[in-house]
Simulated assay, not measured.
Amino acid sequence: MTRKHTVGIIGGGGYTAGELIRILRCHPAVELRFVHSNSQAGKPVSSIHQDLAGDFFMDFTAEVDPKVDVIFLCSGHGKSRGWLAENAVPAETLVVDLSADFRLTDDFVYGLPEMNRTAIKASKRIANPGCFATAIQLGLLPLAAAGKLQDEVHIHAITGSTGAGQQPQQTTHFSWRNNNLSVYKPFQHQHLAEIGRSLNLLQGEAVPDLAFLPLRGDFARGIFASLYLDTKLSEKELQVLFHDYYAEHVFTHVVAENPHLKQVVNTNKCLVQVTKHGDRALIISVIDNLLKGASGQAVQNMNLALGLEETTGLQLKAMVF
């Protein structure tokens, strides 16, 4: 029997760690060795991730074995770099960082498989993209690859409350969030930097401005992004461009019908639709922010880097009902 790859999770108390555990405990090629949390050490993992009650009996630990085959870093932004500086992780250990610490550096490969699949396969250090960044880039990569991002892109994207993390905040409180919408960080969201960096690299020249309005939605999970820009390409040319670009990518699908969030929640899929309205192209991109936007994509990156079938452990059905 083939030996399973050993895995550890650092920063195990948050949403992304909980989703990683949910995927990895049923992944046929890995063995989850530890879930690290200084604040929860000694407590059952199911006391925090209550969806695991009754069938997952591991405790959080403050002890770490850096010699496992794979380490997922799920601590808050700014903590991954410090943790790696303090812990002697072997060069052969695969590290997938779900924070923003290495997304804008050359120290880690940027883990967007639809852009960097070959580099991911050869890497032991991978920076998982942000959730908004994933949805928006998957709506724009085919245009950037063809050098067709020549006009300002207007982006309107709404995210579920889990995108704000597990720590309670005023804007995630149920009585505030329910039946409510609000814009935040208009035109200056932190994910714009990684989006612009990727698109510039892919296009080979600077891309136009990305006018991004992020919104807080009154639902738990998912990102619905609508993007529009002026283009001389016809709708048929746009369709061919998008279908050709994603033809070999197993989790991003170009669809003819108007997509909606319930088609992707609980999956690692991205659904993209592109249409033409007068001189404007309209692109809709929808993902689950905790899966394709975080933990699912992290496992996808792990699969690629370990030489596994890319879809292993990630063939999840959407929660339509």
Rank of each mutant, 00 (worst) to 15 (best):
K317E: 13
L73K: 10
D106E: 15
G42A: 04
H191G: 08
L201H: 15
H5V: 09
L98W: 10
H191W: 04
F321H: 14
Y228W: 11
K121T: 03
T118S: 13
I10N: 06
L241N: 00
I195E: 05
L192N: 12
A256E: 03
L24E: 05
L24W: 02
L210E: 07
V250Y: 12
T312A: 08
L271A: 09
A91M: 09
E31G: 05
L210I: 10
V272M: 07
S46D: 08
T311K: 10
W176G: 08
L20I: 00
A62D: 11
R280H: 13
H277N: 05
F242V: 01
G296D: 02
D218W: 04
L84H: 10
G278V: 05
I284H: 05
G13R: 09
A100R: 12
T6V: 05
H27W: 01
M58F: 05
Q137G: 05
D218Q: 06
M115C: 14
K148G: 04
H5D: 01
T172A: 12
T118H: 10
G8M: 10
G196W: 05
L291C: 03
L143Q: 01
A225F: 06
Y245G: 03
R216T: 11
N200F: 12
L238T: 00
F132S: 07
V240N: 03
Y245W: 13
L201M: 15
A133H: 04
F57S: 09
L73I: 15
L213V: 15
A53G: 06
F60N: 00
R221S: 01
Q40R: 15
V183Y: 01
K232D: 15
D244A: 06
P90Q: 12
E86C: 01
K79T: 07
F102T: 06
G18R: 03
R177I: 02
M1G: 14
D288Q: 03
G217E: 13
P208A: 13
K236F: 03
L138A: 13
V7R: 05
G196P: 00
D106Y: 02
H191T: 15
P168K: 02
T93K: 11
Y15D: 12
G217R: 00
E235I: 00
A53N: 12
G296C: 02
A127L: 10
